Computed example of a mutant assay.
Amino acid sequence: MPETIAEVRMLDSSYIREIRSLLYHAYRHEPTFAYLFEADRPGFDQRVRATVRELVNQHFAEDLPAIGLTIDDRLVGVALVAPPQRRLDITESWAWRMRMLLTTGFRCTRRYLDYHAAVLGCLPPGPYHLLPLLGVHPEFQGKHLGEQLLNALHAWCEEDGGSKGLVLDTGNTRYLDFYQRHGYEELGEIALGPIREHVLFHPNPKPENRLAG
């Protein structure tokens, strides 16, 4: 299938509604969210929608960066980025925790907080960027847009001399080969009920390699 070329944009708060819709559609079938928000219990879609809404809203309230892909002004891919010095702010917010409790319930909020802490526990010492959420809209998957999004993220993170690289996690085994082909190394594995969440790291080039390039 020929590659579809998208435009890379830094996204501001005017994109919040589009980002929330895209990430809801991207995550509602993901095994990690199925476990965290109890897909076998009524109200799962509402819990996923509420969680994505609260994460995206808090991300922009904290003035954190977001990178998007657009085709003809339609948002088709997005990554929320947490810089090293800000990566704990969202889940430490009591207002965010209260909204999560009210919309997803105590058990799902506790599962999410434990999952988040376990991911952070896999990180070695040092400054890293984290990707709390990223996705390509299901209508546009299979068009190499995930690769374009990763390349844009890597280029953007490389500009930060205070970061050692980029960390993401996935419980979807069909993505592992894709990430490994793009230079990701496994830092650790987390047990989430029946799910095995893989924490992956993409190192920034060393300064001498940047100069050589």
Rank of each mutant, 00 (worst) to 15 (best):
L22H: 05
L23V: 04
L23E: 03
Y24T: 15
H25Y: 15
H25A: 07
A26R: 01
H29F: 09
E30F: 06
F33Q: 10
F33E: 10
F33G: 07
F37N: 09
F37M: 12
E38T: 10
E38M: 12
A39E: 14
A39G: 12
D40E: 15
D40G: 15
P42T: 06
F44E: 02
V48F: 02
R49I: 05
T51C: 11
R53D: 15
E54S: 09
L55Q: 10
V56W: 00
N57C: 11
Q58H: 10
Q58E: 14
F60Y: 15
E62D: 14
E62R: 08
G68A: 01
L69H: 02
L69V: 06
D72N: 12
L75V: 03
A79C: 09
A79G: 07
A79S: 12
A79K: 01
V81F: 06
V81Q: 06
A82G: 09
P83C: 04
Q85G: 13
D89N: 14
D89A: 15
D89G: 10
I90A: 08
T91D: 09
E92I: 03
W94I: 12
A95V: 14
W96N: 04
W96T: 15
R97Y: 07
R97W: 07
M100Q: 15
T104D: 06
F106Y: 14
R107E: 11
T109C: 05
R110M: 12
R111G: 05
Y112P: 04
A118Y: 01
C122H: 00
C122K: 02
L123V: 04
P125G: 07
P125T: 05
P127V: 00
P127F: 03
Y128W: 11
Y128R: 13
Y128E: 05
H129A: 11
L130A: 06
L131E: 08
L131H: 02
P132F: 00
L134Q: 08
G135C: 04
G135Y: 04
V136S: 02
H137L: 01
P138F: 05
K143H: 14
H144I: 01
Q148T: 03
N151Y: 14
L153A: 01
H154L: 11
A155H: 10
C157S: 13
C157M: 07
E159C: 09
G161Q: 12
G162A: 14
G162F: 09
S163W: 04
S163V: 06
G165N: 02
G165D: 00
